[in-house]
Amino acid sequence: MRTIFATALLLGSAAMTIPAAADTFDIVKQRDKLTCGVSQGVAGFSAPDDAGKWSGFDIDFCRAVAAAVLGDPEKVSYVPLSTKERFTALQSGGVDVLSRQTTWTLSRDSSLGIRFVGTAYYDGQGFMIRKALGVDSALKLDGATVCTEQGTTTEQNVADYFSTHKMKYEPVVIDSADGIIKAFDTGRCDVYTTDASALYAQRLKLTDPAAYVVLPEIISKEPLGPAVRQGDDKWFNIVRWTLFALLEAEELGITKDNAEAGLSSDNPAIKRFLGAEGDSGQQLGLDPRWSYNIISKVGNFGEIFERNLGHSSELKIDRGVNALWNAGGLMYAPPVR
């Protein structure tokens, strides 16, 4: 009995000293601004212009969350983070959401105190080289020096790839993407390896982008997605359903330009989605027209992809597997109802 009593006291003391998970939703509402962790500058995903205005695929996701929660996509403070800083910043509450080309893996989802809300972009690791190297396949890179970014999944992926194909390489590990660009541009390494989408973006920063080529091999699965802290289910649901709303809007044909007309549509699914009917907003603790606020002010998933990454952008990346499920891709949202 004495042992049971002592254990109960210990557990009671622990319960009093362990703080409850912060309600990020209330914090964001009180602050009237979302803090979003982004990259330090990757074209097409998150990068500031000369005036300091941020744009990109990941930026637009942050804007969509702000539109859903605060009704205004401009109420966002962007925090540029290195790969080493990104998880610590999220864990510590330095940012409310991480939207920074981050691969969803088992170890990250289970041991870092964070939760990925879904896949926003299906990517895979590739290789970029100088055309002058005369190589047309990653299988011909035996003996190459290879630049990778510290603290990323690319380090292990490239090690596995070279080992599997019985090739040798010399790793050059650098702590930032900009540092790799400088090293690669000056010839410190023969190969730059990271997610293929990032290679297309980073190529634009090289002195002579046309002198470089991305090889055809994709050596990994890299599902990139936003993440939030564990133990904050309300906030997790809001950020997750923001992503799903962007996808559902594209499937329903709702765009930034026609969202207003959709409020009086003859299609009940469109009216429910936009909040003219139903209670999806109440279920999330948001304004009834939370999804209308997202689409009318930011656009649907397809619009975000096209202007930042697609053929209307500098990167000109095909949708490929990032197309909707009914257009040959992997993108699929549960019903927003």
Rank of each mutant, 00 (worst) to 15 (best):
80 P>Q: 08
107 S>C: 00
100 R>C: 07
97 V>P: 04
68 A>I: 14
71 G>W: 08
91 Q>S: 13
92 S>W: 01
100 R>Q: 10
99 S>E: 01
94 G>H: 06
67 A>D: 04
93 G>Y: 13
99 S>Y: 03
107 S>I: 12
77 S>M: 04
97 V>M: 07
85 E>F: 12
96 D>S: 13
88 T>E: 02
83 T>I: 12
71 G>Q: 09
98 L>A: 06
95 V>P: 02
100 R>A: 12
108 R>V: 03
67 A>W: 08
65 V>M: 06
98 L>S: 04
76 V>P: 01
107 S>Q: 13
71 G>H: 08
80 P>G: 09
83 T>Q: 13
65 V>G: 03
74 E>N: 15
100 R>N: 13
79 V>C: 05
89 A>V: 07
85 E>C: 08
92 S>G: 01
69 V>Q: 03
101 Q>L: 15
85 E>D: 13
67 A>E: 03
87 F>R: 03
103 T>R: 05
86 R>D: 00
88 T>K: 15
88 T>L: 13
66 A>G: 07
86 R>A: 03
85 E>M: 15
65 V>D: 00
75 K>M: 10
94 G>Y: 05
95 V>N: 01
76 V>K: 05
81 L>T: 06
87 F>N: 04
86 R>N: 04
81 L>I: 09
67 A>R: 08
80 P>R: 10
72 D>C: 12
85 E>H: 12
